Simulated scan of single mutants.
Amino acid sequence: MDRQEKIRILQDVIQIQSPNGNEEIVALYYKNLLEAYGIDARIIPYSDGRANLVAEIHGQDQGKILAVSGHMDVVDAGNADLWDFPPYAAEIHDGLIYGRGTTDMKAGLTALIIAMIELKASDEPFKGTVRLLATVGEEVGMMRAEQLTQMGFTQDITGMLIAEPTKPFYHTKHKGSIQYQVIAHGRAAHSSTPDKGINAILLINEFINKTNAKMAAATKLAYNDTLGATLNVFTMIAGGNQINSVPEATILSGNARTVPEVGNDVVIGIFNEAIDSINAKGQGSLALNILQNNQFADGANDSDLVASILAVDPDAENRGLSAATDGAIFTDVDNDFDFVIYGPGDMADAHTINEAIGVDEYLEFIARYGAIYRSYLNE
């Protein structure tokens, strides 16, 4: 496969619009690509228009099983008029491919797949198995990684490489993630007689103040040397339906990023303590709705997979990752395997306007992944 073909494949995938949906078309594209090179691939449906993809290549002898993974969904492109180039055109300018999902993470996933194809096509002897796990819905909920985990695809592996953007680092650990809503129920009234109502926005405001104080106290007591501190960010609020009425309902959304020392149970406990103290007053009520509750991922710093990565990228540094990945789900099994996140692109460019990936960096990672496969499986 020549340089231009590799670039064209990535452009094709970027041009498939898959913002938190429509991933089945991406999966079918990859399936056809793999099968054109003699690699069987299996579509695993999740819901209408959404499907995971699993494929394997096998060496001449049994050995390690290396799972390689990336997600096929992207976040919404937002206002396309704010982009310098159309977000799904995959145009190349000054050595960069522009488009939603280039960095997060179609470049990394495509590089993993092309490296599999090239290893298969080379007829070079190797041991063991490379298993592709391409997922849907990582950006919202990670439920599709859970589907593959429940089907046993990580129960027998010896290592997992996730191609999220990490430049210039690699990550063996990342924070947990809690996505949640707090729903406030008050009582509507005319704004000229607010004492007749219960203001749901003020209930949420009280929750925010109580939670911030409790979170600050908890995080002062514990800090993870690799991952840092547990964080909680309130990200969306919606309340009221008319400017001259006391709002009877408000929904607050948030995302917490957790470390082992102040973990998911501790943070959810803080939320519930604040809610209980407010509800005890009998003036309106709050309810907690947990949308996603993923634990942190914790891989070994000195694994064989780390050694294989350092062999091709000796200057890479191991850093903790604040963002969550499908690894939080995949590693939640009774199987202790090597785990590393390593891929092209900078996480700071993910979800941004004018998201882009360097063409040469993408191509370099195809070669790096091929070398990692050979090193890890044959050592």
Rank of each mutant, 00 (worst) to 15 (best):
E56R: 15
A77G: 12
G282E: 05
G152Y: 03
A229L: 05
V26F: 01
A41V: 14
T325N: 09
D40M: 14
G343Q: 10
P247G: 01
A256Y: 10
M72P: 03
L231Y: 11
M215Q: 04
Y342A: 06
I16T: 01
Q295M: 00
R368I: 03
R319W: 06
L66R: 08
A311M: 10
A27E: 02
V262L: 12
P87T: 03
A311C: 01
S308D: 01
Y37F: 15
D156V: 04
D332F: 02
T331H: 07
Y223R: 03
V75P: 11
I201D: 11
S285L: 02
N22V: 02
E361D: 15
T110A: 08
L66Y: 10
T172L: 04
I25P: 01
F153D: 02
I353N: 10
V140S: 09
E91A: 03
N294P: 00
M72T: 03
K120C: 07
G343S: 11
V306P: 09
D304M: 11
G38A: 08
I43K: 11
L10T: 03
A51T: 00
G320L: 01
M1F: 13
T129E: 14
N241Q: 12
S277H: 08
K173N: 10
L363D: 14
K214D: 14
I353D: 08
A67V: 10
A307G: 07
L112A: 09
V306L: 04
N289W: 00
K173I: 02
L109C: 12
H351R: 06
H58D: 00
V74G: 04
Q15R: 15
N52E: 00
Q155G: 05
L53A: 12
Y30G: 03
N244K: 02
G21I: 06
E355Q: 05
Y362K: 12
G299M: 10
L133C: 08
A367W: 02
V140D: 09
F339R: 06
A188L: 10
L202P: 00
A90R: 08
T250A: 15
L203F: 14
S18E: 03
L53T: 04
G141P: 05
N318Y: 00
E56S: 15
G263I: 08
A67Y: 06
V68C: 12
I97A: 05
D338E: 13
I198Q: 03
E206P: 00
G228V: 02
L321E: 04
I290G: 12
G70R: 07
F337Y: 07
V75N: 13
D302H: 08
K127C: 05
A274Y: 01
G263K: 06
L132K: 13
A67K: 07
I201G: 04
F207R: 01
A134F: 12
H58A: 14
F234D: 05
N318K: 02
E24Y: 04
F234N: 10
V267I: 13
S322Y: 01
A89R: 15
S322E: 06
Y373V: 14
N244E: 02
E35R: 12
N20M: 13
V13N: 09
I178S: 04
P165R: 11
G327I: 09
I329C: 01
G137K: 05
